[in-house]
Amino acid sequence: MTFIKPLNHHPKLEKNNLGLTRRDYEGAVSSLCAGCGHDSISASIIESCFNLNIESYKVAKLSGIGCSSKAPAYFLNQSHGFNSVHGRMPSVATGANCANRDLLYLGVSGDGDSASIGIGQFIHAIRRQVNMVYIIENNGTYGLTKGQFSATNDLDSKNKYGDDNLFKPIDLATMAIQLGATYVARSFSGDREQLIPLIMGAMQHKGFALLDIISPCVTFNNHAASTKSYDYIREHNEAVGKTDFVPLGEEIKTSYDEGTSVEVNLHDGSKLSLEKTDKNFDPCDAGKSLNFMREKEKEGKVLTGLLYADSTAKDLIETLNMTETPLNQLDQDLICPGSKILDLINKDLS
């Protein structure tokens, strides 16, 4: 069981613009192992929602099966949640999104859930550009079934029992960029300062936003020979720069040297501003970004931060040319053509 601590030293009862405290964004008491990375991610989600003045009841939380997929029970108590079946959250999210375009869809999945059993659905949700935040709590292992290798585990990493991993990993962030996701970031559950603006950016982005968050499993994959342990990530983590979330109407305070800063426009008019550490990196250019990621991988680094963003693409709702009113709110007289039209149809059929 983990007690979720508030970020910084703010008093817990500080209120946001809706008059809500962080506590109003909490969920049930977590049943995950003490120290599990997933709990830190929940805390960052709570912080992001608090900061963004989000109305919980307008959020739908969706997940598959796994320790990570249990996490949505531990934040946003006033949101409806849907713990679906293993690897199939993306399809449920797609249908839910089509039924009501007005909610914020927050999907939480694991590396087993998304990179193995559910990889097909993961790919197609991206391809369709479902408007959602898709968080992968990536621990390189199957936590809930007790420590088998997952498909994101690195080739040279061992499991808790000392067995070698025989296969190369799937990099879901790289894959997401290649498939056309319009917001892709990688982060680390232990780095809330980086993670929170990235989650906030994802929530304000329109289109498919992937957050591949390395989230150590203290029980099964936090040993010395693991490349998804707290120690390993702290040592090998290289951020593409510092990301700040700039709410609508607020000034971007820091002025960076030319070529070192990027601003990403978000759907509600807010921005993410990124102070880059390397001039060659450009999160608005998928090709360049992929090259940069590959280079860093060769250097043995785990590249984190905002990796790619495109704020111009159409989401699924637009592609399907759907009406402004959510489908679940259409009145019967709008959707049932009635007897007069049926008479015409009968005539055509006789």
Partner: peptide, 14 residues
């Protein structure tokens, strides 16, 4: 996926 989507939409009241 076909049934997953239909379930998601029904869950949401469509």
């Amino acid at each position: 996926a076909a049934i997953g989507m239909a379930i998601g939409a029904n869950w949401n009241g469509a």
